[in-house]
């Protein structure tokens, strides 16, 4: 079990202006745990995509809503939870994007969830009361 000292939190508003700060927060802690450069860059991207999806979909681009990022680790894994109080995500209804079709239709987006799944070892979506949680795990 992770001790309390191994858990770090960051709370920000649901604005894309915080993206770099959120990425740097998880990257700094992942570096302290001793993850490789490749793993760190994958975690940065996964967290970016999850945070961006919360802003766009859970909060529909409202920029002043709460988002909490929690990061912890134990000898076997590093985990990151991102929590919001917006509209929940239904992973069962998600389909992997057909990029060619989207280009033809001049659509964009829909790639974040797919990337998160590719980049992390485990991804879970939980609903706790009014709160949504995406929990992402990277094995050490």
């Amino acid at each position: 079990m992770a001790g309390k000292n191994n858990i770090h939190t960051l709370s920000v508003d649901s604005s894309t202006k915080h993206l770099a700060e959120v990425r740097d927060f998880v990257a700094a802690h992942a570096k302290n745990v001793g993850l490789s450069e490749k793993d760190i860059s994958e975690i940065r991207l996964a967290v970016d995509e999850a945070f961006t999806n919360i802003i766009k979909h859970a909060y529909k681009n409202t920029t002043s809503k709460p988002v909490k990022i929690e990061l912890g680790f134990d000898p076997s894994k590093l985990w990151i939870s991102i929590m919001d109080e917006g509209e929940g995500f239904k992973p069962d209804e998600y389909k992997a994007p057909d990029i060619l079709k989207r280009i033809k239709n001049k659509q964009r987006g829909g790639m974040g969830v797919f990337l998160i799944q590719k980049l992390m070892d485990q991804v879970q979506y939980n609903r706790k009361g009014q709160m949504n949680e995406i929990r992402m795990v990277k094995n050490l």
Partner: peptide, 17 residues
């Protein structure tokens, strides 16, 4: 130094035109 899918989305939106 870094790109997220929102960046790729810009290329997706204009390449066809």
């Amino acid at each position: 130094e870094y790109i997220a899918s929102a960046g790729l989305g810009v290329f997706m939106a204009y390449i066809e035109d």
